[in-house]
Amino acid sequence: MDIKLININKSFKGQQVLRNVNMTFPKGRITCIMGASGTGKTTLANILMGLQEADSGEIHGLQDKKISAVFQEDRLIEHWDAIKNILLVCQAEVTKEMVDEELKNIGMAEYEGKAVKALSGGMRRRVALVRATLSDYDVLIMDEPFKGLDEALKKLVINYIKKKTKDKTVIIITHDKEEVALLDANVITIS
């Protein structure tokens, strides 16, 4: 089932952030939400994640769906290592070895035994990405997931995401046209 937003409105302290937003996210596809800064993209992501409530409007297709996320910030447990951070959100059948393999697939090296706060920004981002893809989910929502990655790494990570999220509903917030092209995604522009 597609996810549909109908006439979503949201205001903060009297300022309207989202006005009559209508969108459809097709099932099993990657959809990118694009738009300039301050257009309410992150607010929209928070509403989809259930962290904020819309003032009015309807959301269809998200009921009883398991959501996974990459937040704008990494939101990792700083003093835990990468594997422990990822296993925290995973089902019991996901093993340490599986996580280790995924991290290596995404180009991570020399992260073992290190708390994530000692890792570089790019490595932390990749830990957040692997965490999101390894958790049990129906819909994956990512807010600027490739932020802080250099060009070569970005391509590697995008390919990894495409492979890992095949046939899953993915919503990505970005303002980078190149990322959208590489992702081969649907595009919705928010203004």
Partner: peptide, 24 residues
């Protein structure tokens, strides 16, 4: 708060929340 939101999105159980977020 941001970690608590993360816990909400990933549906972490109470024990995991205590161990990973509250206790430290």
């Amino acid at each position: 708060e941001k970690l608590l939101e993360m816990a909400r999105v990933f549906h972490l159980n109470r024990w995991k929340c205590i161990k990973a977020i509250y206790l430290p």
